[in-house]
Design a protein around this nucleic acid. Structure first.
Lengths: 117, 117
DNA sequence: CCGTATCCCCGCTGATACTG
DNA sequence: CAGTATCAGCGGGGATACGG
């Protein structure tokens, strides 16, 4: 039988660029990574240690995507034990207000639920 | 007048409640739905028409989840042609700053890419 | 008009083992 | 230390058909 080909749905014209930003910060671990990097640059293992539960694979995956999105810069220190530092780019810094806003409302959501909404 | 908010103390080693909020606005269509409802209440068909490409299934699914999250209220008008109106709750309104911040940075991401990033 | 039910693809994510 | 490779599972999301 013929392999059923998924209908190619054309991208819906986004009225507002919400998808643009959420495709950047929308992953499971991504916002946490950005949040930690927004404080200061960190090395791979530091991030892995700061974010309990994340696997090396996912951390790599997310960092690579963030690099591709131009929000994170990867800097290799050619020391004898190799060390790689990640930091937010200028563009990445612009995500901070959005992250902060999300954190803020996130707190209220938790409070609301704690109150037995 | 708003009651004075809790002091923003720095978060303990606990992770920031990004997931709390992103689990609410993190769906593919969810932010758009919230965005449109933040302007004014809309009916089911209006939303479906305003958001090109969304299926009834997803619209229902997202609206039900937003209801469960307490950010959207469903109001049935018992008219002869049945009509259902959705609107943001008070809690839902609190998401607007986050949405706005995301929209804002979303614009910059688009601009940045348009510049031949 | 306002949904529900079903099927199915595919990308995200985890676990584990391996490399420079 | 900083990753890569591979297998496997789950759940989001789309298409279609049907119900109130």
């Amino acid at each position: 039988m013929l392999p059923r080909r998924k209908n190619q749905v054309e991208e819906p014209p986004e009225q507002c660029p919400l998808g643009e930003c959420l495709s950047v910060i929308g992953g499971t671990w991504t916002p946490n990574i950005i949040w930690y990097l927004s404080e200061h640059p960190r090395r791979f293992s530091e991030l892995k240690d700061d974010i309990p539960g994340i696997s090396a694979k996912m951390l790599t995956s997310r960092l690579r995507k963030l690099e591709a999105d131009g929000v994170v810069e990867r800097r290799v220190e050619p020391t004898s034990p190799p060390s790689v530092e990640y930091r937010l780019t200028d563009l990445g810094q612009e995500l901070k207000p959005a992250i902060d806003a999300i954190v803020s409302v996130g707190h209220r959501l938790k409070e609301r639920r704690a109150e037995g909404d």
